[in-house]
Design a protein around this nucleic acid. Structure first.
Lengths: 338, 338
DNA sequence: TTGTACGCGTTATCAT
DNA sequence: ATGATAACGCGTACAA
């Protein structure tokens, strides 16, 4: 690992000059510039980012915290893909660290990124509460953006979408197609998203004067397997069911698997809806792709915002993604039979 | 951002003492220890990792480079999940950076990680050649481990598995069930993995004296959509087909979608196999889950090795994962009908 | 047991 | 246009 000093000596100049050549800041003659470049080449020199970042207190990279329980989600790769691509265009590096599985560890992950002097950090939280995050944002100078949670205090530091509204629309869609007995598979209920989607379902039923039948609501855990179990539980309850709305695609896939094992052809005898739009799900039934995954859109938006904060001035929009997503989430018709 | 110096002053001691308290190295009396901790608390002090790493030339974290074209793969989340969990137990941080989409950029990603002084870096390469990687490993002191590629020179720095063998077994499985007209959907042929799987297919056919019919081989691109296209291409060729082997699950899913659109029930009229074992695929047909994804196993193994290199001495096993995987890849029976 | 002083590799502010 | 030199925040011999 050769240092700047070695390069300087090889080139017969001072450290300062080498630094100028590398940064492009300050005047330096073409002649010495060439010498320096040659010396860099010869020495196989690489700037030490730690030293540079220590001196400048910047790092040209932004951090992302995701709890590793979410790594399993099929849409997770989509998130990363989005984020990396967007940042790439901006010349910054995305670095991902694991939020593990507790509020404390999510906190530490954020700290780790900040301790590395990331220019900003994005968190897709799972355990931290809104108030905790508001507090964390207060305590740090670097921008900290929160995805999929509506903060109380720092509204411009978060971005979220209307899960309740989407769920409402999905339910409404089924109702309008003549379904009165719509079962609902929830996500894990420690998740705000799960709760909101459940609320949207209930709202729609109430609004159409159908009424909520608790026996039609079964608790899932976001996984395909829990979708299978959910259908089993549903059957055990002996309820009449003409449609099932699952809180995400993976559970919908599991549910469909179970139904199909029992000889029930999904697109015909029963309607089945999921959210998210994971890569392989569209091939299961067109109905599944009718609602787009909002998460990657949120990531995309948050990065745009971050970039303009870091590069441009400090404009602080309020979070407004809700209405746009609601619009997009309108359910398409598709070859649906009830 | 308070510094160590501030803490020292608050506690009425020197920087060195604070440093000792934090690191646990060297003697320090309980009394001053308490004072220091109190001062740390009051100041809300956080060690600056850049400074620390710069001074020690270590970082307690290891880097992972994955080309973002692979982010889309459904098994990608599995890789991360594995890696993060394993490292978590070891008290290290995993940081992921994007290898983007060229050899040059993969190179830069590795450099970035090294420049950050990661203790080691793992690369799941897509564009770098074996020789280039051997050279990179030569040039750096930090361990650089390569996944899914067999290096020429640094055999102990890579880990791979026998894609050809797996493919051979899968093909053999179909042959033994009476199939003589087995179509094969390749992956993108710029991928060594794709080529090896194709080779395994051909070997099996030859070994059983069935002979390779080029008209039954159709080129895919790893995606579900390309699986659909592949089946379409196959049909256009008017060949007799009783089974299809796809080079990964996503293409298998696409293929099944197409077949099912045409009214062909997959488990009955035709056999369909994929690799990988992605989360939602098992629900499509049991056949798809018959061959396990080797990638996350490789990652897991490489991390184990890395940990013993970093923590323990420098034992250098040769890469030997092949045989184990071959064993595991044996195809299960499942409700398969030909 | 604690403090001093120097080094880690850069950047940045002065002079020159 | 270029060169000293002081930060940046921390670790660590060495001395006390």
């Amino acid at each position: 690992m050769s240092t700047m000093l070695e390069v300087a000596q090889k080139a017969g100049v001072s450290k300062a000059t080498v630094s100028r050549v590398l940064s492009g800041k300050g005047y330096v003659s073409e002649a010495t510039k060439d010498q320096v470049y040659k010396a860099i080449e010869e020495a196989g020199y690489r700037p030490n980012l730690l030293a540079r970042n220590l001196a400048t207190n910047k790092s040209e990279c932004i951090g992302l915290v995701v709890t590793n329980t979410l790594y399993n989600g099929s849409y997770f790769s989509e998130i990363l893909s989005q984020a990396a691509k967007k940042l790439e265009d901006n010349g910054r590096q995305l670095i991902l660290v694991d939020g593990k599985h507790s509020a404390q560890e999510e906190r530490e992950a954020i700290q780790f990124l900040l301790d590395l002097r990331c220019d900003a950090v994005i968190i897709y939280p799972r355990f931290l509460t809104i108030d905790e995050m508001d507090e964390i944002i207060d305590q740090h100078k670097q921008p900290i953006m929160v995805v999929n949670r509506k903060l109380r205090k720092h509204q411009s530091h978060c971005i979220c979408c209307d899960h309740k509204g989407s769920s409402f629309l999905a339910t409404k869609y089924l109702i309008e197609r003549g379904h009165n007995d719509i079962a609902f598979i929830t996500g894990a209920l420690d998740s705000p998203t799960a709760i909101e989607r459940l609320a949207g379902y209930k709202d729609a039923l109430n609004q159409y004067h159908i009424g909520v039948n608790e026996a039609l609501i079964v608790q899932g855990k976001w996984t395909p397997d829990s979708g299978v179990s959910a259908v089993e539980a549903l059957l055990a309850r002996q309820q009449k069911v003409s449609a099932i709305l699952a809180s995400n695609d993976e559970m919908a896939v599991g549910a469909m698997k179970k139904l199909s094992d029992m000889g029930i052809s999904v697109p015909h005898e029963i309607s089945l809806l999921g959210f998210d739009n994971i890569p392989t799900a569209p091939y299961l039934t067109p109905a599944l792709s009718s609602i787009k995954d909002p998460v990657s859109d949120m990531i995309s938006e948050v990065i745009s915002r971050l970039i303009s904060m870091l590069d441009g001035g400090y404009l602080s929009r309020d979070n407004i993604f809700t209405s746009q997503l609601l619009e997009r989430n309108s359910v398409s018709d598709g070859p649906f039979k009830s």
